[in-house]
Structures are given as structure tokens and as C-alpha cells.
């Protein structure tokens, strides 16, 4: 089996929102696409997410956000990633994301946005595209 260039992803649920069925299903889809997926569990602080991403040496942090707080959360996390030196880690955001917010997220430096309704195929393709 090939051991090189395996994509490692942290699927993380920041803050108070308590629905993680979507996050878990996406984790499964990524596993089936041959990626190594670490799932953080619910109610993570940004500090916990940062530490987990650091210790697990992931290539991607995938945030799942349904609370409406995607803009401030992403902005803060990107600042923390820069501060801690995770320059080569990509941030992707999924969940309940209004379409008008997608350009704002991209401008902040979010690599991919997967709003509710995105197919697994598109998520996997989007993830793989980051490493072409």
C-alpha cells in the first residue's frame, strides 16, 4: 500500500453548536476517499482546535459550523494559524454558510467552502485540488 502523500484532515466543531451528524458523515466520505481523518468531537475551543491540528500534523482543518458564526470564527482561527506557524495548513469551512458569505471567507484565506448541499464528490475533489 502507498504510504506517501496521504492527506490528513482534522474535522472540527467549534463553539456551541451541537449537531455533528454532518461532520461525521463528511469524515466517513473522506475516509472512503483514502484520507486520514481526525475528528475533534463537539464544543471545541479554537485553542483546542489549534493544538490538535499542530499535534496531528494535519494538511487540512475542516471546520463544520452551523451556528452562523462562521465569519468571526474563521477570521480568528486564520490569525491563530499564522501566529503559531501553521502556514502550510489549509482551512476549509462547511455547514450552514449563506452564499453571500463565501467570497468573504475566501478573501480571509479560507481555501475551500462547502455549504450545505455540496455533494461528497465535490468535497473530495475540492480537498484533493488543494494538493495538486
Amino acid at each position: 500500500m502507498e504510504t506517501k502523500n496521504k492527506i490528513r484532515v482534522l474535522i472540527a466543531k467549534p463553539g456551541l453548536d451541537g449537531h455533528d451528524k454532518g461532520a461525521k458523515i463528511v469524515a466517513l466520505a473522506l475516509r472512503d476517499a483514502g484520507m486520514e481523518v481526525i475528528y475533534s468531537g463537539l464544543h471545541q475551543t479554537l485553542d483546542q482546535i489549534m493544538q490538535t491540528a499542530t499535534q496531528e500534523a494535519v494538511d487540512v482543518i475542516g471546520l463544520s459550523i452551523m451556528s452562523g458564526a462562521h465569519l468571526p470564527i474563521s477570521e480568528k482561527l486564520i490569525a491563530m494559524m499564522k501566529e503559531q506557524g501553521l502556514f502550510d495548513v489549509n482551512l476549509t469551512v462547511g455547514g450552514v454558510i449563506p452564499f453571500q458569505d463565501i467570497p468573504k471567507l475566501k478573501e480571509m484565506g479560507v481555501a475551500q467552502v462547502f455549504p450545505g448541499g455540496t455533494s461528497f464528490e465535490d468535497i473530495v475533489t475540492g480537498m484533493n485540488k488543494l494538493f495538486e
Binding site: E2, L30, D32, G34, M35, I38, Q44
Partner: peptide, 24 residues
């Protein structure tokens, strides 16, 4: 698929922010 779900640390996440703990 060659993929994996790494779910052990889920149970240890309360130590995630402790700088003297390293979970891999």
C-alpha cells in the same frame, strides 16, 4: 480505501489545550 478515522483522541480532547500533553 487506505483511509482511516482516527477517533481515539476524541475521548482525550479536554487535555488538548494543555501544553504539557501531546496526543498523536
Amino acid at each position: 480505501s487506505g483511509g482511516a478515522i482516527l477517533g481515539d483522541r476524541l475521548r482525550m480532547q479536554r487535555h488538548a489545550a494543555d501544553k504539557k500533553v501531546f496526543i498523536r
